[in-house]
Nucleic acid binder design. Sequence first.
RNA 1: GCCGGGAUAGGGUAGUGGUUAUCCUGAGGGACUGUGGAUCCCUCGAGCUGGGUUCGAAUCCCGGUCCCGGCCCCA
Length: 454
Amino acid sequence: MIIQRPRGTRDFLPEETERRSQAKKAMQDVLERWGYREVATPTFEHLELFTIKSGASVIEEIYSFKDKGGRDLALRPELTAPVMRMFVSELQNSPKPQRLWYFGNCFRYERPQKGRFREFWQMGCELIGGSKPDSEAEAVALASRMLQSVGVSGDIHIGYLGLIRSILGKIPGEHRSSVMRMIDKKERDALATLLEEIGCSHFGLLELIDSKGESALDRAAQIVADWKPAQEAAAAAPEPVSANEAAAVTSSSSGRGSARQGRAVEAQLHLEEFVQTVDLLKAYGVNFTIDFEIVRGLEYYSGTVFEVYAEGLGAQRQICGGGTYELASLFGGKETSSTGFGLGFDRIMEIVQMNSSRPSPVFMAFTPDVKREAARIASRLRESVPVVMDVMGRGLKAQLKAAASAGADYAVIVGKDELDAGRLTLRDMSGGAQESLLIAEIEARLKAHFQDIC
RNA sequence: GCCGGGAUAGGGUAGUGGUUAUCCUGAGGGACUGUGGAUCCCUCGAGCUGGGUUCGAAUCCCGGUCCCGGCCCCA
């Protein structure tokens, strides 16, 4: 009986594995050119690491288990938390910034579908401890360059949480998380209704998330500017003037007015930060769309957030997500702002146009009586080029046939005649031309051939 | 967790309640005992799994597993 693969897992045959390592290599080269260094973390961690980061609800989708000592463990569902755990316990006192990258398999107990598996691979990086606008621009530009390196073009959408959090600050605490959730889920109508109900529809939140692209920045600036007259108006007029104007503030106390003023100033600072990120990103030559609707749901994101979408992936269009977050302190470390992103490697592989064309090894063909000499010659040649030898006990004819069907460009033939002459036969498999050459000559010839191809 | 479609030699397919068949590929042998992708012949190789109906099931029925697409979710 044949044992099947567990659900949502895959086998990668040589050709696909070759494609994957080529793509990984291309993106890895970009990371290394940007000064990032690879790290690796355990495949399983304490379950708590992930629930602290993402909440208890993720347990549903985690491969978690108790080990024989009764510990609650989990196969990692993502890599940011493990990398930040490692940072907090090992690297906190090392020079900043830390530029780290990773590539690893992750596991989620989900229903498989196009571009979604239970074991999947993430590639990503964390830029730890840098200052915001610069780190953010670097991260987005780096993600863009990595995708470019494998010929994938995606739509980059970048949002900014600083501003949205300022607005949230004006909203009663008990509603904040539902507001965030609705933005994230794009439940626009429900959001409008809720904001109306709690009297917060005038802060410009809907306007902000509705505007996309270049104009979104001006819109945002306008919204922040509108809060200033609001303070003056609030000081002068105790009653809201109009429900549609930012001037319509429900409070009349000067104490709360100054709190608002504080927030407006803060929001303005935030906005300036974001403007710097955007400017720098333009300098990097990256194409992107400003989209304040990108909020990435979670509490620990604090600054710029971004996502990249690609066509041709059905329902799973997102191939990259990231942003600036505060996680170090969640894991017991010092407050450290970091920016990072993860790429969905498997989704990228679905759309990447890459043909693996690794040249087939040289075929060492020999007659049975000179097997030992053939093995020695093969070893010598392997110092410069890939060589395979028959292990099927085939005759010379069958070996050459096998070499041809394996796509070998060259065969080296050795038998008694060759040994007597002190020269080997080099056969060009494409035309069938043969030459009698010294081993050093063959080595040089083959070496040159492989260098041409690779 | 929900909805739909699937599973037949290594890979494609067709078909039928009664030694299935076909295309490609692979292995072994032969035409051909130191020179290849050809051709021909022979052999090997299959119906996801567990149960039921039946004299007989790869085929009909029921569970399960896995795959594909979508919903939910997506750190």
